[in-house]
């Protein structure tokens, strides 16, 4: 019996590139202030999608983080959301102050996008601001009645903190704020916390939590665990990754993450661990 309808292969770039209407960079930047709000929204997405790192595009997107004209019925800020998402992909740290201000926006999805993008930009100076969203621990990270999300975008924040806080002056505070979330009622939050705790402490107990997540009853969470283990390169997980109940492509990409951390391009000789990983990857082709 089928588990679910088949989805397009998720491990590969989609064909969106071919389908997106063509814009020039100048047009897209101009459209960010077009009277037609839907064109602004689309232009913000487009600039991120095609990674337009032109300084003028970044400046225009930073301005869009303050937009007040595009509102949803519930008071959300669609253009700010898309601008925040786009800025994470453009590798320009001028966006950091504006994104930090977005962390206190009323719109959950603006805060979530800002946290994700701050994690991607790699500027650790925003860690204290990110940690403020975790104040209150488990009690403050509960679902909002009537909405499909928690009070704060804790997964996005935890992920950004795991990427940015290691070996910074805020490492100890980050550990203190993230640890309680290991006991969150949602398993996806637990796993995000385990991944960040592993990045912050390098203790096997947290890597092993992610290995346990490979047996989660939900295939989507098993896929997340595969991706997390690959991202942190947790070597003891190799066998468990290879035998997890998930599609071969997810397992292959996860093991690739482990292998990359065992390879030193200037070193011609491969380690025993690297050869074992290669053999597992071959078996998943």
């Amino acid at each position: 019996m089928p588990e679910s309808p088949l989805l397009p292969e998720r491990d590969q770039p989609s064909s969106e590139l071919a389908e997106a209407p063509s814009l020039t960079v100048e047009q897209a930047i101009a459209q960010l202030t077009d009277p037609d709000l839907s064109l602004r929204y689309y232009a913000a997405w487009w600039l991120g999608k095609f990674r337009v790192t032109d300084p003028a595009a970044v400046t225009a997107l930073i301005a869009a983080l303050e937009d007040d004209s595009d509102r949803t019925e519930l008071g959300g800020y669609p253009l700010r959301r898309n601008a925040a998402r786009a800025l994470g992909k453009l590798d320009d740290r001028r966006a950091v102050p504006g994104l930090v201000r977005c962390l206190s926006c009323d719109d959950f999805y603006v805060r979530e996008a800002a946290a994700q993008s701050l994690g991607m930009l790699g500027d650790a100076s925003c860690v204290p601001e990110l940690l403020k969203l975790l104040v209150g621990g488990l009690a403050a990270a509960q679902p909002v009645p009537g909405r499909p999300h928690l009070a704060q975008p804790v997964e996005a924040v935890v992920e950004a903190v795991g990427a940015l806080a290691p070996q910074t002056p805020w490492e100890a505070e980050a550990i203190e704020r993230v640890r309680p979330l290991l006991n969150h009622s949602l398993r996806r939050v637990q796993y995000a916390a385990a991944r960040a705790m592993y990045q912050l402490t390098r203790e096997a107990i947290y890597g092993d939590r992610l290995v346990q997540a490979l047996s989660d009853p939900d295939v989507n969470l098993r896929r997340v665990a595969l991706s997390d283990l690959g991202a942190v390169g947790y070597l003891p997980a190799a066998e468990a990754i290879a035998t997890a109940a998930a599609e071969n492509s997810f397992k292959l990409f996860s093991l690739k993450g482990l292998l990359e951390q065992q390879i030193y391009p200037e070193e011609l000789q491969l380690s025993t661990a690297a050869v074992q990983l290669i053999e597992l990857m071959d078996s998943l082709l």
């Binding site: 690739k256 292998l259 990359e260 065992q262 390879i263 391009p265 011609l268 491969l270 690297a274 050869v275 290669i278 990857m281």
Partner: peptide, 26 residues
């Protein structure tokens, strides 16, 4: 391919050379 931009590919090429009996060269 032992100098591929992707580390996994580069590693696999080096391993393949040892399997087929040729040492990877710098």
């Amino acid at each position: 391919m032992t100098t591929d931009t992707d580390r996994a590919v580069l590693a696999r090429a080096r391993y393949a050379l040892t399997v087929v009996g040729a040492a990877p060269e710098t």
